Simulated scan of single mutants.
Amino acid sequence: MKRIVALILLLSIFLTSCQVKEPLRSYSEAIERTEAVDQGQSFISIEVENTYREGKEIDFGDQLQFQIYSQYDFTDSKNEQLETHSYIDVGDLGMDFSFYLKGNDIFIKLPFDENYLIIHDNTMNQEVATMQDEEIFTIIFQPFMEKWLEVLQEENVVRGEKTIMTTEDGDVKATKYTIQLNEEQLQTLVTVLSSILKSNSELILSTVNNYAEFVLTEEEFIQLIDDLKSELLKSDMSITAMSYINADGFVIDTSIEYTVLYENAEMPLKSQVYTIRMEQWDIYNEQDFNFPELTDDNSLSMDEFQKETKCFIEER
């Protein structure tokens, strides 16, 4: 979970950097300070709004939504605690699930089920840590980050102002930074990102194909990236981002809005709006967790879960 938070926080530094070194240094310090937080609460929301051309609507839905609330305490490495509640809405299908970590045990509240999946000895956590290896970040995201900073330094586009904002901790003094990228800068970033993705297709596919319902070949993946790049470069794009740093030097609120208007009349999609919001509060305060009471009647082992899943698939 901390890696997800850190990634979005890192994104905020690219969206709020400028030619002047002092603001960039301040942001770097705030990102590092916030990433090191091992006790607190956070909320992340990602929404995608789709607008279709008349007569070309599809069943995928006008809006996609993902939300995750987290409460965590990693101050004791031998007794790490985490409680998350997530909600996913795709079209007319909504699912919610909860994830708990308590020491060496993990339990997951499954969607459409009253039972909890129990995993002892933290074996799943080790697998998740492996999937989130530094390699992907270093190879794919780091070059893009460097180019992003380079693009933003072409022109001073950041605006900063002192403000008072309302948070879960009450009204706090903060510095608000806003940035808007022009279309040329966005096109440069699209080109760079597509190049990075294609040059690392083997690494990406080795991860994606393990979890996707269908398998992409390298040739299909590269063609997909090329097609997407072509459509984006022909489209009108805009991005606006805001980030707030409190008086203690922590990033407590980040919001990003990305809009794309597709010019290709053959595409079902007319436009898309991506909105990302992240909040963090209760930093370094003692946490009060609400772990569920587990019984034999509401718990499933991994073996029992796999058997139930197999039976469900066979019935379908």
Rank of each mutant, 00 (worst) to 15 (best):
I252W: 05
E154G: 00
S271V: 01
E202D: 15
T84W: 05
F289I: 02
F107P: 03
Q142H: 04
L64D: 13
T34G: 04
N104F: 08
L15S: 05
D303I: 06
M1C: 05
E114V: 02
C18P: 00
S243F: 02
D62I: 01
I13M: 09
R277L: 13
N200L: 11
T130P: 01
L181N: 05
P111Q: 09
L149S: 05
S42D: 14
A212V: 06
E184W: 03
I88G: 10
I179R: 02
D92I: 01
E57A: 11
M1L: 12
M237D: 13
T207Q: 13
M237N: 15
Y274G: 10
E22V: 06
A30P: 04
F291Y: 11
V20A: 05
E47M: 04
I13V: 15
I68G: 05
I119Y: 11
T295D: 07
I252M: 06
Q153C: 02
T75E: 14
D89F: 04
D38L: 14
S28L: 14
K270V: 02
S70P: 06
E231D: 15
T259Q: 14
N298R: 04
M278Q: 15
G103W: 09
Q280H: 11
K147G: 01
Q19T: 03
A36E: 14
R159W: 00
Y69Q: 02
D236P: 01
M124S: 11
L224Y: 12
A6F: 09
V5E: 15
Q187C: 09
N156I: 01
D171T: 03
T167G: 08
K21E: 12
E35M: 06
I44H: 12
S70D: 15
S98K: 09
Q180R: 03
I140A: 02
T175G: 01
E184M: 02
L110Y: 09
M131L: 14
W281V: 03
K173D: 00
T175N: 06
K176N: 05
D76G: 07
I276P: 00
S45H: 07
E161H: 00
E155N: 01
F66W: 08
L93K: 09
G61M: 06
K147N: 08
G249C: 08
Y244V: 03
F99N: 05
L24C: 04
E150H: 04
I283G: 02
I13Y: 07
A36C: 03
F14W: 07
K173C: 00
E80N: 11
I8Q: 09
Q187G: 12
I276G: 13
G249K: 06
I108T: 07
D92H: 04
E49P: 04
E22G: 01
S271W: 08
F144M: 09
N290C: 05
L64I: 04
E49Y: 07
D297F: 12
Q187V: 02
E168N: 06
K229S: 14
V37L: 12
E57V: 07
A174Y: 03
R3C: 07
K78F: 10
L228S: 14
D59F: 03
R159Y: 01
A30S: 12
N210V: 01
Y274F: 15
S70V: 00
T188Q: 10
I139T: 15
